[in-house]
């Protein structure tokens, strides 16, 4: 938005619905607000809540693209709303809650609960029974490049965009999604996690895991952290096939 031009009037259509209200049904509601310099959808939605409709529900926490709370469909595409500048969008904007997750109301969905379930199923923690930690002693060494590689995959913010963008999950509700497969890739890479290939196979060597993925790559396109989902899924698939053949 240039300095001299009159600010745009944004027309924001929001899919509204309160599942707690038995009388309510989903409907689109339009809000018109004046765009300001550097406006993000976080600022725009707060403006609407504060000045137009204080019952509007949505989830922001860090408002800096870090915590993964605010994913929604912006013009049909899953993304983090807080770091979406309105200047990059047309003046007519459509917002809808992320599909497939439990709806709390309006744009607020319970991605956290889904992710918790996923983490519990995949046991996304270091499995190491033998190694008693002595906190006084020097830490175990790790190759610097390997630490960087693990961090690269650790950067997932559990926003659920990849899940909302995934074709498989619509047909297979228990599909682990790119987020789940990425987590397995992360732990598999980590020498501190002592799980065997067979144990990993148990977790994702099936149609709800890596063999359910159709590699259409909706996930990688929408991942706000640019995780290398495609190459990791391909890698896991190869590894799982090898494990299957071996047994």
């Amino acid at each position: 938005m240039s300095k001299d031009k009159a600010p745009r009037i944004l027309k924001i259509d929001i899919l509204r619905f309160d599942p707690h209200d038995p009388e309510d049904f989903p409907s689109m509601e339009r809000f018109e607000i004046e765009e300001s310099h550097g406006m993000t959808l976080f600022i725009a939605l707060n403006d609407i809540r504060e000045h137009h409709d204080n019952s509007l529900k949505y989830d922001f926490v860090c408002r800096a693209g870090i915590c993964g709370s605010c994913s929604m469909l912006v013009n049909g595409r899953p993304t983090l709303a807080c770091r979406t500048l309105t200047s990059k969008l047309d003046e007519h904007i459509t917002l809808a809650p992320l599909p497939l997750f439990e709806l709390i109301g309006d744009l607020s969905v319970y991605t956290g609960k889904w992710m918790r379930g996923l983490n519990e199923k995949l046991e996304t923690w270091i499995h190491d029974k033998e190694n008693e930690l002595n906190v006084d002693k020097l830490e175990e060494k790790m190759e610097p490049e390997l630490a960087d590689e693990i961090y690269e995959l650790d950067r997932c913010v559990e926003c659920g965009c990849c899940v909302a963008g995934c074709g498989t999950i619509q047909m297979r509700p228990y599909f682990k999604g790119a987020v789940g497969l990425n987590k397995i890739a992360r732990y598999h890479l980590d020498p501190r996690d002592k799980r065997s290939d067979e144990e990993y196979y148990e977790l994702i060597g099936n149609e709800d895991g890596v063999f359910g993925c159709m590699t259409l790559l909706g996930c990688e396109d929408v991942c706000p952290k640019d995780l290398p989902l495609q190459s990791k899924i391909a890698y896991l698939r190869r590894m799982m096939l090898k494990t299957a053949v071996k047994n």
């Binding site: 270091i126 930690l133 906190v135 006084d136 830490e139 630490a147 693990i150 961090y151 980590d190």
Partner: peptide, 19 residues
């Protein structure tokens, strides 16, 4: 503090390492 960070390393934090 050194104990806490070593514990976190044990629990999976991929701390950047000395090269």
């Amino acid at each position: 503090a050194p104990k806490a960070i070593r514990e976190l390393a044990h629990w999976g934090v991929p701390w950047s390492r000395v090269k």
